[in-house]
Nucleic acid binder design. Structure first.
Length: 287
DNA sequence: CGCCAGGATTGAA
DNA sequence: TTCAATCATGGC
């Protein structure tokens, strides 16, 4: 039945931690509500005792897109049950129980993480917001008279492919414009099929994404984890490197190679989930 | 291996 | 107020 609001009855779901854990860059909190765009849906979410309450700015026939994005059907207890039983992991779980992995659109996720290179989360947000304002389709008409309230879809690969590198650089993305433009063209001109990547195994999918200029192992793993649901992907950035070093090798300094190998073997079949818990735990401790 | 690529933020002068 | 250090990933 079509409605503009719905209750998603989920437990063990920390909406704030999930939307603010560096996976997605377009969500912002207004009072107790999270505003965001999923595809062409503008939605507002808030955590209530019974689960997550969602409101859309339009009538929605099928809310499955929201279940999919938020991964409400994931059995989080089963995932946590596969984590290694050690002090760092149990501390991380205690610190952010209810943290989830999202399931994002591959293009939006890929583009966002190409822009994330050597940027901090606040800056990535700014760049992505500018990109959407300038190249994304405006959704609805609420903000027609009020620029600050305008809502935009994430720009399509085709639209980005039609932009110039200079126009993209004007969104403050610097040298990342080249990588974004080239990726958009690969997709728009049919040389890269992001849907086809779903059919590959983890190693094959990673190799495929890493062919793109500006996409190394870390960014490929972010996309594989946050958009494709490859739970074994374990993005290693400086935060995670520090976390592994401090939490698991406090006495002796471990090489990058050693840490990488540890990451690939220690955390089990849902290593990506474990990574997200460690990442969020370290960010919370740093604040 | 070591350098470089922008721009926001932080803290010193 | 200005200015310099810091941040952090991939290509070469």
């Amino acid at each position: 039945m079509a409605a503009s609001e719905i209750l998603l009855p989920v437990t063990d779901y920390d909406l704030a931690a999930t939307l603010d854990s560096g996976q997605a860059f377009r969500w912002h909190r207004v009072k107790d509500e999270w505003h965001g765009v999923i595809g062409r849906h503008h939605v507002r979410l808030n955590q209530v005792p019974e689960g997550i309450h969602a409101r859309a700015s339009h009538l929605v026939e099928d809310w499955d897109f929201l279940h999919e994005f938020l991964q409400t059907r994931t059995d989080i207890a089963a995932v946590l049950g596969t984590f290694p039983v050690d002090k760092p992991m149990s501390d991380a779980i205690a610190a952010c129980r209810g943290l989830r992995l999202l399931r994002q659109d591959p293009w939006e996720c890929l583009a966002s993480f190409i822009l994330s290179s050597t940027k901090q989360i606040v800056q990535i947000r700014q760049i992505v917001a500018l990109l959407c304002e300038r190249f994304g389709e405006q959704l609805g008409t609420e903000g027609a008279s009020h620029p600050a309230l305008r809502i935009y879809a994430f720009p399509t690969a085709e639209r980005i492919a039609a932009a110039s590198e200079a126009e993209l650089r004007a969104c403050k993305m610097g040298f990342r414009a080249k990588g974004l433009l080239r990726a958009a063209r690969e997709i728009a001109e049919g040389r890269l099929d992001l849907e086809g990547v779903r059919k590959l195994d983890y190693a094959g999918a990673r190799t495929e994404l890493m062919k793109l200029h500006g996409v190394g192992g870390k960014i490929a793993d972010c996309v594989l984890l946050f958009a494709y649901g490859f739970d074994s992907a374990f993005p290693v950035d400086v935060w995670i490197e520090r976390a592994l070093q401090e939490l698991y090798f406090p006495r002796r300094r471990a090489s990058d190679k050693r840490l990488r190998k540890f990451a690939d073997t220690h955390f089990g079949p849902h290593a990506g989930y474990a990574q997200q818990y460690l990442f969020h735990y370290m960010r919370m401790k740093a604040k």
